[in-house]
């Protein structure tokens, strides 16, 4: 090994070891486990893809896959749109800019478990804030059971998720906005481009790489949605809001590690494929260079 290659390798060695031990090994372990019939009270048996075959015949799996897909299809576009609006707003020269930025970041800074508990209180049937507002303003005389129907539970979860993660998008997009050189905008002003023209011709194209990164993060994050479901609905009513991670967690809890790992691996493959699609459409390589 020549010296030029050796020293950079030495520098990244600690990080590599860390990734190897804490990320790569568990992932490989999960994939291997998914090929076994690994149930605590039965003998371990290597069964190739039998777990996967059973997953594809399991109505519970399809239901949670459908829910997870709908969930990211509805919540992520909303988060991206709102995040973009917030990013543009806090990028402007407004008074108390620092204070505003902190305010917008608060939902993201609160641990998901705690904010989900707060949402639980908001949606509560008897003393929840949402029902209080409804009766106070006269929108509805009868209290509404927000989490009681499939649709209601779905949108309650979407709202809680959008509230929580929009700041994350806003902050990433804000950094994207700030690396766009101001001269371009000055030039555009000289050319008498109006606000919309500047937005569509300059801001959006130059924001695209950062936008794709944010989208990618949120998609992977959204696919493995767990915490707010675990706290708010537990997959109810009637299994209508069971996400894929929640579904695999239940198998883990019951001691069926092989099947649970197979569901996790399927989830991993789905997010991997989706990421590839994003990278392809985002033309990530070109825009970066």
């Amino acid at each position: 090994m020549n010296k030029e290659l050796r020293s950079p390798l030495l520098f990244i060695a600690p990080v590599l070891t860390f990734i190897l031990i804490f990320i790569l090994l568990p992932v490989i372990g999960t994939v291997v486990t998914s090929l076994y019939k690994d149930i605590t009270y039965l003998d371990n048996k290597f069964i190739f893809f039998e777990n996967y075959r059973q997953i594809f015949q399991d109505p519970g799996f399809w239901q949670s896959l459908r829910f997870t897909m709908f969930f990211i299809l509805v919540s992520i576009p909303l988060e991206m749109l709102l995040g973009l609006i917030f990013a543009i707003l806090i990028d402007q020269e407004v008074p108390y800019k620092g204070f505003l930025r902190v305010c917008i970041l608060i939902p993201w800074a609160i641990p998901a478990a705690i904010s989900s508990r707060t949402w639980e209180l908001i949606y509560n049937y008897n003393y929840g804030l949402a029902n209080f507002i409804c009766s106070f303003t006269g929108i509805s005389v009868q209290p509404v059971n927000w989490l009681g129907t499939s649709l209601g539970a779905f949108f309650s979860l979407v709202l809680a998720d959008v509230w929580k993660t929009t700041p994350f998008i806003a902050i990433i997009l804000l950094t994207g906005l700030q690396i766009i050189p101001g001269e371009i905008y000055l030039q555009a002003q000289v050319d008498r481009a109006n606000f919309l023209q500047r937005f569509f011709k300059i801001t959006l194209p130059l924001l695209k790489p950062v936008f794709i990164v944010a989208l990618l993060f949120r998609t992977i994050d959204g696919l493995r949605i767990f915490d707010i479901i675990y706290i708010l609905t537990h997959g109810g009513p009637g299994g209508a809001t069971a996400s894929l991670s929640h579904y695999s967690y239940k198998y883990f809890l019951a001691g069926d590690f092989g099947y649970g790992s197979a569901v996790s691996t399927t989830l991993f493959i789905i997010s991997f494929l989706l990421s590839l699609v994003y990278l392809k459409f985002g033309k990530f390589q070109n825009t970066l260079s």
Binding site: Y41, G238, G239, A240, A242, K250, Y251, A254, G255
Partner: peptide
Amino acid sequence: LPYYTQISEIMQKHINSALSGKT
């Protein structure tokens, strides 16, 4: 039964679904 938890999970889902009026 050792696999009681799985049975329970499935029953929870369907009984709760009936209680909610979905099925």
